[in-house]
């Protein structure tokens, strides 16, 4: 089987992926606009009974830690933040991809979701602390989707983890991404981009998915956002939340300093905040799935 064959098969798989829910697509469109109103988000949720139920469950979960129950969507959206609402909508409608065991990366089911969620939270904190001058909540959405391409590559990478790590260690490849390309003729950022096009995601999300490991290649207008996710991804991996064998096997681009102002102390603060926020958000979303309707 040639590389081209595998590449074509992966592209076919991407085009068989489940579509995003209408609500998830709308929410991404709305939150991509810097000057949107929260009422627009509330509206989308109110017109989707499944999403309404889920949002209320998450905000009322024990992990979220509120004293009195929340019954209105307005209040739920305010308390959770728009980003978490978008996260729930994306996570629910693409759960099949996010929860897939990435066996080709020797990673268990659910780890991709955890990594993406942690990277989302970290990307947002980086945007806030680093004074990126972009919508921090949008950095969250971009972080959530950045590695979705791995869900399509994994099956074709069974048994390759050991040899790839050896390759990188011996400087025969610069990072995991290059090894993916060499092995399959496509890497996870390219597969992710094809999915993003198939899903008609807003342009900045396509850019981040495609360039999160090489943010210097992003168009100038989306560079700050791409650097936020570049660092958010690395911070997630530093926190022990990777997707298996490729954890920490990517290069950090030091040029982020041109877009982000992050001192070592701020970085430590970001790591700590990410830990706390992740425990709260991942806990409340998981809990809301477990309990019967």
């Amino acid at each position: 089987m040639t590389d081209k064959n595998i590449r074509e098969r992966i592209v076919e798989e991407v085009k068989k992926a489940p579509m995003l829910s209408i609500s998830a697509s709308k929410l991404m469109e709305i939150t991509a606009q810097v000057d949107h109103e929260t009422t627009e988000v509330v509206d989308v949720v109110m017109h989707d009974s499944n999403l309404t139920a889920r949002v209320l469950k998450v905000v009322n979960s024990a992990a979220f830690g509120l004293m009195s129950p929340v019954t209105t969507i307005e209040r739920a959206v305010t308390l959770l933040g728009e980003r978490v609402v978008v996260g729930i909508a994306i996570g629910d409608s693409a759960g099949q991809l996010f929860n897939k065991a990435l066996t080709g990366y020797e990673s268990a089911g659910g780890e991709l979701w955890k990594h993406d969620l942690r990277a989302a939270i970290a990307s947002r904190q980086v945007a806030v602390h680093g004074k990126a001058g972009i919508s921090a909540d949008f950095a969250f959405t971009a972080g959530l989707l950045h590695d979705i391409g791995k869900a399509f590559l994994s099956d074709f990478m069974e048994g390759t983890a050991g040899p790839i790590l050896e390759q990188i260690e011996n400087n025969q490849a610069t990072d995991y991404l290059e090894s993916e390309s060499e092995l399959l003729g496509i890497n996870h950022t390219e597969a992710g981009l094809i999915l993003a096009e198939y899903w008609s995601l807003p342009e900045p999300l396509k850019v981040v998915i495609h360039h999160h490991h090489h943010p210097d290649q992003a168009p100038e207008e989306f560079k700050a956002l791409t650097y936020c996710v570049h660092l958010g991804d690395i911070i997630a991996m530093m926190g022990g939340c990777g997707t298996g064998s490729d954890t920490l096997q990517y290069n950090l681009d030091p040029e982020y300093i041109r877009y982000l102002d992050l001192s070592p102390t701020q970085l430590a603060e970001v790591l700590l905040e990410v830990d706390e926020e992740f425990a709260k958000v991942s806990g409340s979303i998981a809990e809301s799935k477990e309990s019967p309707r």
Partner: peptide
């Protein structure tokens, strides 16, 4: 104490 592949070592929390 794992490290990031970082040429400038700014992320050297490990």
């Amino acid at each position: 104490g794992a490290n990031v592949m970082d040429p400038n070592d700014t992320f050297n929390i490990g």
